[in-house]
Amino acid sequence: MPERPSDRPPDRPYGDPSERPSGRPSPDEVRQYYAARPSPLVAATAIVLDPAGRVLVRPASYRSAAELPGGTVEDTETPEEALARELEAELGLSVPVGRLLAVDSRRPGSLGRSLITHVHLVGPLPPEQAGALRGATGRAAARWLAPEEAYEVLPARVAPRLRAALAALYAGSLAHLVDGVPQPGSPAGLDPLRRTALEHAGSFDAASHRAARPKAITAASVVFTDSAGRILLVEPSYGNSGRWNLPGGGIDSDLGETPRDAARREVREELGLDLAPGRLLAVNWAHKHGYPARIRFLYDGGVLGAAALGRIRLAPFELLRWRAVPAADLRDLVKPSLRRQIEACLRARAEGTGPLELHAGRPAEAPRKKGRKKGRKKGKR
C-alpha cells in the first residue's frame, strides 16, 4: 500500500475472520474500515534509543518492510497514551513517553485519509532494560540499529521522519514535516544549505526566519581561587561522576537575564555566596555537529579567603562537593576544553589582559593584518 500509519487495522474490522480461509480482513474491508473513520488519521511513533544511541527497529506485522514502534490513536486517547499502549503490547515496554520530537503530516494515499504522526522520544533505556525487551532479540525480531543503518532498512516515507526527529533531539527543538520533508521555518531538520537558500531568496516571513535560525546555549561561570592560588571546583550530582566544573550555569535569557546577572545568581544558588562577579576574562565558543553551539562567559571571582570559604553552603540535590585544586591537577578532574578555558582565564587575570576570545578553550586566531613584506627597498642608483 502506498501509505499506511505505522499501526495495523484491527483483526476484526468487519465480520469474523475465522470464517475466511486467510483469517485476515480483505483489502476491500481494510479500505472500508479506514474510509469510515474521521479525517485525518492520527498515529504516534516512538524513537526508542539505547545508551549507545541506537534506534529500535522492528519488522512490520503486515508487510515485509521494517517500521518504528507505534500505532493509531484510538477513541479518546491522546497520542502519548496511544503510544504507551502500543509499546506495552508490541514490546512489553512500560516506560514514560518522552518529549515530542516531530509532527509529520501526510497527504491522503490509497486509503483516502490524511495522516498526522506524532514522533516521541523514548529512552535512552538502561542497558538491562534495552536487552530485555520482548521481541528485541532473536531471528526476525526487533533490532537495535545505528541511525545510518536504520535509514537504510526503513521505508522511504519513514526514514526521513526518523532523520528529522533525531535532528530535533540533538538540537533540542521540534521538526515540522509534511510527507517527511522539513518545512520552511521548521525549527529542526531543515538542511542548512536549503535554509540559507531560502533566506537569500527572501522566502521566510519573520516568524519562520526566527524559528529556522540556528540556536545557541549560553552559560556563565566564575573563576575563584583561594589565597594559595588553587581553583575552586564543584562536583555536580548529575552527569558523569568524577567530573568537576566551575561554579555557574545556564543564563535565563528568556527572562531577560544577562550573563553577569546569571553568574551572580548561580554562585548564590550553588555556593550560598552573594558576590558580584569581577571583570569578564573570556568568552568561549564550542560547537559539535548537529548540536546547538555553546557559549560560556567566564568572570573573575577574585580570591576567597578562609572566612568566605567557610561560608560555602552547597545547593542540595545539585552539588555533591567542592574543593580547591592546584592548576596542575585540573587535567585529571575537568574536561580538556574546560581545563584550557580555566588556564587561559588565569593567565588573563595575572597579566591583566582580556577579555579573551576562545574556541573550545583555545585562543581564536585573529585575522592577520595586510601590509608590505619586510625587505630592502629598491631605489635608484
Results as ranks from 00 to 15, higher is better:
3 E>H: 15
7 D>F: 02
16 D>A: 09
19 E>V: 12
29 E>V: 11
45 T>V: 07
46 A>S: 07
48 V>A: 01
52 A>N: 13
73 V>Q: 00
74 E>P: 09
79 P>Q: 02
85 R>C: 05
88 E>F: 10
88 E>C: 09
99 R>V: 13
108 P>N: 14
109 G>C: 08
111 L>V: 08
117 T>M: 01
123 G>P: 00
128 E>D: 14
130 A>H: 03
138 G>D: 03
145 L>D: 01
149 E>A: 06
159 A>F: 01
159 A>E: 00
171 A>V: 11
173 S>N: 10
203 S>E: 15
205 D>S: 00
209 H>Y: 15
211 A>W: 03
214 P>E: 04
221 S>Q: 15
226 D>H: 08
229 G>N: 04
230 R>N: 07
230 R>C: 07
236 P>C: 08
253 S>V: 14
255 L>C: 10
260 R>I: 09
295 I>F: 03
302 G>C: 02
306 A>G: 09
315 A>C: 11
315 A>R: 11
317 F>M: 12
317 F>H: 14
328 A>H: 11
339 R>A: 13
343 E>S: 10
348 A>Y: 05
355 P>M: 03
356 L>F: 04
363 P>Y: 07
363 P>R: 04
366 A>F: 06
372 R>F: 12
374 K>V: 12
377 K>C: 10
381 R>M: 12
